[in-house]
Design a protein around this nucleic acid. Structure first.
Lengths: 213, 213
DNA sequence: GGATGTGAATGTCTTCACAGCT
DNA sequence: AGCTGTGAAGACATTCACATCC
């Protein structure tokens, strides 16, 4: 079933959505052919890196020509499961959670938030930005029922760990963690941290060190 | 003036705010001594990596003992300029921008959003979550006036590039970019991308590849 | 005794530079 | 003639494992 070329380097995998996005942009702009040099200009990824990344999936281009935009786009759509719809849960409907509910995660929607959870009685049972909000008590049940295995965590840090444990119990396999805490999870669970304070402080740090790195 | 130990590896620098945060947590919890092994458990950073990271700043620990929490905290506070207040601008007060205005970027506030910019007449001139909102027309002037050199970019992607060019013109040196586009900037300007769609899609990709990487 | 600091080994990622194919 | 795909080199990062020192 998985005819997938395995052992894609992590760094490459993390760039795939970016390539996919720019290929769509190019395709929509009517471009039918692209070289690694041009794609590099758009994405700011070194052209040799782009060629290396692509090469992990086979010989996608033609020497002396470049890559066919439509073919590449189709290929990466498959790779990234853009054909299927992936349902995601949002846990914690505070300011940031609300913003993410409104966030257009895709023009071409292949990922969508299909359920949200909170403890605030005034929003439980309502539809926020098109997404039903459930109480946290119903979370395990709903996650199981809806077969959701990706969750976005935007709860207060005080309850982050306990919440993630419930989510994992309910079968969640991947977590996009917006809390500033590093979560403890079983090793087969993937956590991606989005650490806004950290990003901002790193930026300030580099600014104050006159560092070129 | 800069007695700073230079040539800190990029990967180390990106972990400094995390260390700082956990040291504060430990300090506030009354812990006065910590080993790299314990800090590793909290931060999920390998203990050898922690020791290597710290060693770039000198010999901060004591063999057979570990590290003094307060001393480390003080040290990293200096390194990260936690003593000074850094003003940051928020450009684009949509849903995500609003959420960031409310985001507590620090318990111990050393970074704060001091000005916001938008084109929406109904919020221009108002105070949103304690932050004055100016029109984009006033942006260059205000950024200069307030000597702001860090900006958070949460504008629609259609105007991202032109907006960033104005910000750079106004002296901004670092940008936290929440738009899905890769910005073109002079090479002395630092851009940190926070690419939410990308993160989510990468997570989905890894989920569907039964990848261990 | 116990945990640091660090050479050395290993792993990962990027970049060069060019042979080879179209 | 031009651009890919990739060996080889280089740069960077992590991890091992232990001598060293408190």
């Amino acid at each position: 079933m998985k005819e997938q070329v395995n052992k894609i380097p992590r760094a490459t995998a993390r760039r795939l959505p970016l390539y996919h996005r720019y290929l769509r942009l190019l395709f929509d702009a009517g471009k039918y052919r692209i070289s690694s040099a041009e794609l590099s200009e758009a994405t700011k990824v070194d052209s040799a890196t782009i060629r290396r990344d692509f090469s992990h999936f086979g010989e996608l281009g033609k020497r002396g020509y470049g890559y066919d935009v439509e073919a590449l786009l189709t290929f990466f759509s498959k790779i990234l499961n853009q054909d299927k719809l992936t349902n995601v849960a949002l846990i914690g409907v505070g300011h940031l959670g609300q913003a993410l509910l409104n966030y257009r995660f895709q023009q071409n929607n292949s990922v969508r938030i299909s359920a949200a959870f909170d403890i605030e009685p005034s929003i439980i049972g309502t539809i926020q930005s098109g997404v039903p909000v459930y109480s946290v008590e119903e979370m395990v049940e709903q996650l199981r029922l809806q077969h959701i295995d990706v969750a976005i965590l935007t709860v207060p840090q005080e309850v982050a760990q306990e919440t993630v444990e419930q989510a994992v119990e309910a079968g969640v396999k991947a977590i996009l963690n917006f809390t500033p805490l590093r979560l403890s999870v079983p090793e087969d669970i993937r956590v991606q941290n989005v650490d806004l304070t950290n990003e901002l402080q790193t930026l300030v740090y580099f600014l104050n060190t006159n560092a070129k790195n």
